[in-house]
Simulated scan of single mutants.
Amino acid sequence: MENAPHLIVLRGNAASGKSTLAAALQRALGPGTANVEQDHFRRVILREHDVAGGENIGLIAHTVRYCASIGNNVIVEGILVAKHYRDMLREILAEHPGPTHVFYLDVPLEETLRRHATRPLGAEISADTFREWYVQSDTLSVPGEVVLDGTADLEVTLKVILNRVGDVTPNRDQDGGRYL
């Protein structure tokens, strides 16, 4: 489908840089790019733990479908642990009418612990709990999935993703004043 929106899935362990990268990617792709953040849906909207069959899973899928249906490029960002989210992610990837891209930020445990300690959440969640949450190489094993060196800096990682995604035309008039 010509000019169909892109669907970009950006996953990785906690403190791997996903949120920062997704925000930079959204700015780079321009108006009409939705950033669907797992943590916002799960922790803020539903106040839900990350559990198998969680309500956030369907809400995320519905939001991705809606955003794409109105012509937005969509970034889905989060830990999105494979054992809970794999089926939903595979489904939205398979049904998406435009180009799809899946990236996994591979950051070693010690680096995520170092980053975690510098964040406000680091004071609330212990390093031991954080270690329990860490899942080594939690890829989706879908065709075309790209494993990124999550220790590279933001600019390098963003450039790799943009090169891989290719040309994306913003799906909204930048001069209309409607979008930030």
Results as ranks from 00 to 15, higher is better:
Met1Leu: 07
Met1Asn: 04
Asn3Lys: 08
Ala4Trp: 05
His6Leu: 11
Asn13Met: 12
Asn13Ile: 11
Ala14Asn: 06
Ala15Met: 07
Ala15Pro: 10
Thr20Ile: 06
Ala22Ile: 07
Ala24Val: 03
Arg27Cys: 08
Ala28Trp: 04
Gly30Tyr: 00
Gly30Trp: 00
Thr33Phe: 02
Thr33Arg: 02
Ala34Asn: 12
Val36Ala: 02
Glu37Cys: 01
His40Ile: 07
Leu46Pro: 06
Leu46Thr: 08
Leu46Gly: 06
Arg47Ser: 05
Glu48Tyr: 04
Gly58Cys: 03
Cys67Trp: 11
Ser69Trp: 02
Asn72Thr: 03
Asn72Glu: 12
Asn73Met: 04
Val74Cys: 14
Val74Gln: 14
Val74Pro: 02
Val76Asp: 02
Ile79Asp: 00
Leu80Gln: 13
Leu80Tyr: 13
Val81Ile: 11
Arg86Lys: 15
Arg86Tyr: 10
Asp87Ile: 07
Met88Asn: 10
Arg90His: 03
Ile92Gly: 00
Ile92Pro: 00
Ile92Asn: 01
Leu93Arg: 13
Pro97Asp: 11
Pro97Ser: 12
Val102Asp: 00
Phe103Met: 05
Tyr104Trp: 06
Val107Cys: 11
Pro108Gln: 02
Pro108Ser: 03
Arg114Ser: 07
Arg114Ile: 00
Arg114Leu: 07
Arg115Pro: 13
His116Met: 09
His116Glu: 08
Ala117Cys: 06
Pro120Gly: 02
Pro120Asp: 01
Ala123Ser: 10
Ala123Lys: 09
Ala127Tyr: 04
Arg131Leu: 06
Tyr134Gly: 03
Ser141Asp: 15
Ser141Trp: 07
Glu145Thr: 15
Glu145Cys: 13
Val146Ser: 10
Val146Pro: 01
Gly150Arg: 02
Thr151Trp: 00
Ala152Cys: 10
Thr157His: 05
Lys159Leu: 01
Ile161Phe: 12
Leu162Trp: 00
Val165His: 13
Gly166Pro: 14
Val168Glu: 04
Arg172Asn: 01
Gln174Asn: 10
Asp175Lys: 10
Gly176Leu: 09
Gly176Trp: 03
Gly176Asn: 11
Tyr179Ala: 11
